[in-house]
Computed example of a mutant assay.
Amino acid sequence: MSQSVSPNQINSILAPNPSLTQQSSIGSSALGNFVQETLALTKRLFIQLQRRPSTLVAGIIQPFMWLILFGALFSKAPQGLFGNDMNYAKFLAPGIIVFTAFSGALNAGLPVMFDREFGFLNRLLVAPLASRYSIVAASTVYIIVLSFVQTAVIIGASAFLGAGFPNAIGLSAIALIVFLIVLGVTALSLGLAFALPGHIELIAVIFVTNLPLLFASTALAPLNFMAGWLQVIASLNPLTYAIEPIRYLYLNGDWAVSSIVMSNPWANISFGGVILVLLGFDALVLLAIQPLLRRRFA
């Protein structure tokens, strides 16, 4: 026997659930507040850069000097030392791109450390923020934007010095690789900024790790040019996994995700494999700093 349904019951069924609507509104509001806070804190960092532009100027001049000096140093290298039909400017450009982005990302923790020492970070932590993670998100956005600016300048300067110019798809791939390496190193630097007691210790870590990671990568010399033990270290260095695909993009306009872009002592790795390695590096660093950030923000 069927039962009739009144119009009021139909309206109650079709009407949206107030609790679900309220939860959705709260979620969208929290996301909007997080984005607003991140943009405001990022704007503060750019205002500091505008008042002290020497950081950006030095970050552009230094890699340009590296390109000129190292290019002149190896200008008379034997033909074929760096591969067929490759001059040292074309070989060096990817290494300078990655190393410049890496150096900037490694310094990302310094503004946070100075905010800690001057007491501004404590003011942020007691402010009614929607999420305190907007503090680290702002620093990350700031460093990524600076890295893209520096990368564009280096690509233009290296093209002027004879390295050539990748096509549009290649430039997009370079931007993706730079983004991935900067994201992981920036997260690591921000974690150190919260873990170390002061800026002296952070600067010491930066100096100790900066140049050794450069020379233990393929930025300045090919992998087969190194001693056996250094080849193993370079094959474990995240910078190598960012340098080699960019170098392949400079040499090959026609490439695919399955293209083999680097060979280490134990395997040949495709472009897609390199991207997975960089994603794994980012995930590992982000997971490692999560407990530290939660403890500090608490």
Rank of each mutant, 00 (worst) to 15 (best):
V285C: 02
L176H: 12
L176Q: 12
A187P: 11
R123F: 12
I47K: 11
F271K: 09
L20D: 15
L196V: 02
T100M: 00
D254M: 06
L176V: 12
A101R: 02
T42V: 08
N264L: 12
Y133G: 10
G280W: 10
R295Q: 11
P78M: 01
P238K: 07
A93G: 01
A58E: 03
V277I: 13
P78Q: 07
L279R: 03
I181K: 04
F64G: 13
H199Q: 04
V232C: 12
F179S: 11
I260F: 06
L106A: 02
D254W: 08
Q62F: 14
Q79V: 13
G228C: 13
P111G: 02
L230R: 04
F225P: 14
L146E: 02
A157Q: 01
N224W: 14
L249T: 09
S131G: 03
V112K: 06
F74G: 07
P245G: 02
I275A: 10
Q150H: 06
A108M: 05
L278F: 10
S29P: 05
N107Y: 09
L192N: 06
Y88L: 05
N8D: 15
F118R: 10
R52Y: 13
A72W: 14
I10G: 11
L190K: 06
M1V: 14
Y133H: 05
M1H: 11
N264E: 12
S270V: 10
V112I: 09
G109Q: 07
G253K: 09
N122S: 04
V205R: 00
L249N: 06
E117L: 13
T21P: 04
P128R: 00
M86T: 15
S12T: 09
S134W: 01
W66C: 02
N252W: 00
L106T: 01
F194S: 03
I174Q: 01
S217M: 05
G32L: 05
F148L: 15
M226N: 07
S158G: 06
I269N: 15
I97M: 00
N264Y: 06
L214K: 01
D254S: 11
A175L: 10
V257E: 13
I97Y: 04
E201V: 09
W229I: 11
V35C: 04
R296M: 05
D282M: 06
P18K: 08
L110D: 02
P212F: 00
N11Y: 15
V5D: 13
I155L: 12
Y248R: 12
F160K: 06
L56Y: 05
L106P: 00
L14V: 09
S25G: 13
A138T: 07
R123V: 07
T151D: 04
I61M: 06
L236V: 02
G191R: 09
L41E: 05
E37F: 00
P18Q: 12
N87V: 07
F46N: 10
A15P: 00
R294E: 15
F120S: 15
I47W: 07
S2T: 14
L223R: 02
F225H: 13
P245A: 04
T218D: 08
Q36T: 14
A283G: 12
V261L: 09
I154E: 01
G104P: 03
K43F: 13
L45P: 05
N11G: 12
I177P: 04
Q150G: 04
A93W: 00
P7W: 05
F215T: 10
L14Y: 08
V145P: 01
V126P: 03
L286V: 08
L125M: 06
